[in-house]
Design a binder for these strands. Structure first.
Lengths: 338, 338
DNA sequence: CTGAAAGCGCTAACAC
DNA sequence: GTGTTAGCGCTTTCAG
């Protein structure tokens, strides 16, 4: 293994000079720099991560905690994770993958051991058990998601309240007065996952303002569950002409069932989804939707974290504004309907 | 920050004793051990990862390279990644997440810097550009996937050749004589991804043996692409009664299109999918399928890697035997059809 | 069964 | 602009 000392010797300079060439923390004459860089290449030198971490008390690693659960839409998590990893690399950081399994202990382990310099938490609950730990640690962290109390925390998320409002507005503008919301699985609400509840808040308050009737039903994914849910909705509110879907695995079943019942989209009923663009585009009817900006969330989270690590940047809640894309699944409410 | 020296002092022993209590590398009297463990708890001591890595030349980190691409079925990758992470933890290892972006350079960086002790590569191409590097490094590695030349490599994968064969057998047993294969996106084949080609090999050779006609068509995901592909297939082979689908985002579109054309599943046509169980179960028709054992692959990969790290375990190709689960989408070929 | 002490490879004062 | 050097916190011989 090639060490810094060997590089120094090869280049005829001192160890510190090599170190400074690498870190750029003090100015180096052009000639020395070139000699050193040449030696580094000649010898195939790679700085030792452990030694560096020990001496500098910085590992240049960011920990990313992802949830174990699989009842959320996985591709979004994956897209965020990948965005985090690639963005982190552009800042010289690597990413350590932690599953939720260890729970709060993982936070202790990572902060205590200096394994990572900072951490990003995904899938935050409204009253997440890891939050107290984060508040008392001096280790920078960023949440992707929004807990109920954000004091002393930095959070990045889509503005789901605005998302809910936006969906209702869109349908209301088209004259829909009876809207049904197909939500996530009941477990998601029971767990008090922030985004689901906030979307609901947004949906409800804007409905109230616009005088629209709103019916919310959680729904497991899949055809059977969707069939049951849809039947109940139409039973309770036969005049329903607008649907908001926030559950990727209910999207296609819903469309199929509507088709099967002879309800044309968007002539008879309109559907607005909250889902990644890919899902909206690949559906059997191209869906009007509010996208989940996974990449943007990942990038923002890393940016915030780097800012903290560099001493810039305070605690802040970054809410990404939702954007609704009109596609083929929404249109004017059929006339003659209440 | 609490150091090992402080723990030693608190417990009234030497630093090395504390170290040995932690590592268990030499026997310690029960009383000393207890005193030390008490001190560790009292002080809230966590060993410093960097120092440990430096002194022992082992980081206790496994690098996991996942592909950037998103044309593969993401949930499977995610499931593997999570299985890798949790399994690794049970062996005392953490997982570093590398995206394919850096390509071979990532391998160099990680092995050179001692950041990770070993690595797992996912989404291996038949002639992957990272393989030469792996062969010349002494750093242990395991591939999830199978390149064309496995010399000097350890690989874990589903036996896709057997998978293909199994699908044909199942359909042939039901009397289907004309089978169409809906494959992955063309890009996947162009990239010479191992699993896609091996499945095809299995499908073809068994078809030949059983005297079944086989038509293979790559297919992008989504309805439009599937509609086009299906039309062409039925045009070319109107007598097709069996479908093998290896493309998650084509599954639902296919079912919808068949339904729309009045072809009942499984009365008129049978469908066998190669996909995760979740997809098979959630589809509008519960699909007869060969599952992708994501968790098992992740666990196996880690097990192989740990074996190597412990000096046990040689290079080996582990092919997981496919299992076909019969569900509601396959049945006897309609009589009167060739 | 336990201690003492020599590094591991690098960073960052402190000197010049 | 460059060199000297004292650690960073832990592991692991070598001694007892």
């Amino acid at each position: 293994m090639v060490t810094l000392a060997e590089v120094a010797q090869h280049a005829g300079v001192s160890a510190s000079t090599v170190s400074y060439v690498l870190s750029g923390k003090r100015s180096i004459s052009a000639t020395t720099r070139q000699r050193v860089e040449q030696s580094i290449r000649d010898l195939g030198y790679h700085p030792n991560a452990g030694a560096r971490a020990l001496a500098s008390s910085r590992s240049n690693i960011i920990a990313l905690m992802i949830p174990l659960r699989t009842d959320m839409y996985v591709p979004v998590m994956m897209e965020i994770a990948i965005a985090v990893a690639t963005t982190a690399r552009t800042h010289g950081y690597d990413v350590l993958l932690l599953t939720g399994e260890e729970g709060p202990d993982a936070v202790r382990r990572v902060t205590g051991s200096g394994l990572a310099d900072a951490m990003i938490l995904m899938d935050v609950q409204l009253d997440d058990e890891r939050l107290p730990l984060l508040r008392e640690t001096d280790q920078p962290s960023v949440l992707i998601g929004l807990p109920s109390d954000t004091t002393g925390l930095t959070c990045v998320d889509l503005d789901f309240t605005a998302t809910g409002a936006l969906c209702v507005e869109h349908l209301a503008k088209f004259g829909h007065r009876d809207i049904a919301v197909i939500g996530e699985a009941p477990a998601v609400y029971e767990r008090h996952t922030g985004f689901a509840e906030r979307t609901l808040d947004g949906l409800r308050s804007r409905s109230r303002e616009l005088g629209v009737r709103l019916l919310h039903r959680p729904c497991e994914g899949g055809y059977d569950a969707m069939a049951l849910t849809l039947a109940r909705i139409l039973d309770e509110r036969p005049g329903t002409t607008g649907f908001v879907v926030q559950n990727e695995s209910a999207v296609e079943p819903l469309l199929a069932l509507l088709r099967q019942q002879g309800r044309a989209v968007p002539e008879d009923v309109s559907v607005v989804a909250v889902c990644p663009d890919q899902v909206a585009v690949q559906a059997s009817v191209r869906l009007t939707s509010v996208a989940i900006p996974a990449q943007e969330m990942g990038r923002h989270a890393v940016a915030q974290l780097i800012a903290k690590l560099d001493g810039r940047g305070a605690d802040e809640v970054v809410l990404i504004a939702p954007e609704l894309t009109v596609r083929a699944s929404s249109g004017p409410a059929p006339s003659g309907t209440s």
